[in-house]
Amino acid sequence: MEIPRHWRLQKQRLALVGEVCPHCQAKIFPARDVCPECGGEAKTAFKFSGKGEVYSFTTLHSVPAGFEENAPYTVALVKLDEGPIITAQLTDVGEREVKIGTPVEMVTRRIRQDGDERGMLIYGYKFRPVLRMS
């Protein structure tokens, strides 16, 4: 069981909480100690909007242990509106065409279980094509 490593990242995975650099205002995801933009110390929590666009994507047919039940699935690099790029699965794509530049939004989904059906459930961010709003 790998409880601590997943628990430690819950705020990042469930609520897309990263950081904003107090020195240069760069938005950072995932959180880190040193701002990649200015090299200053980073520590101020920042909640991302979850809006972004597809920077790149690929569909995996051969998948690693722990993800077999969901194969095949699409993984994307998503460029968040606030700047950073993150790696995440796309979900609820259906027959919608995904392209580089497709607007997507964050949803929280079940990523996998830790080990077998006795293990903890790991939830986190995925992205889907933006829902049409009224």
Binding site: L9, S56, T58, V75, L77, T87, Q89
Partner: peptide, 23 residues
């Protein structure tokens, strides 16, 4: 934590970069 846990593999990463390159 942030790539493997999304179900990404080395081949998947290469696919992401190739897709971007082609585009």
């Amino acid at each position: 934590d942030f790539e493997g846990m999304q179900g990404l593999t080395p081949n998947g990463m290469a696919g992401l970069l190739m897709q971007r390159y082609l585009d």
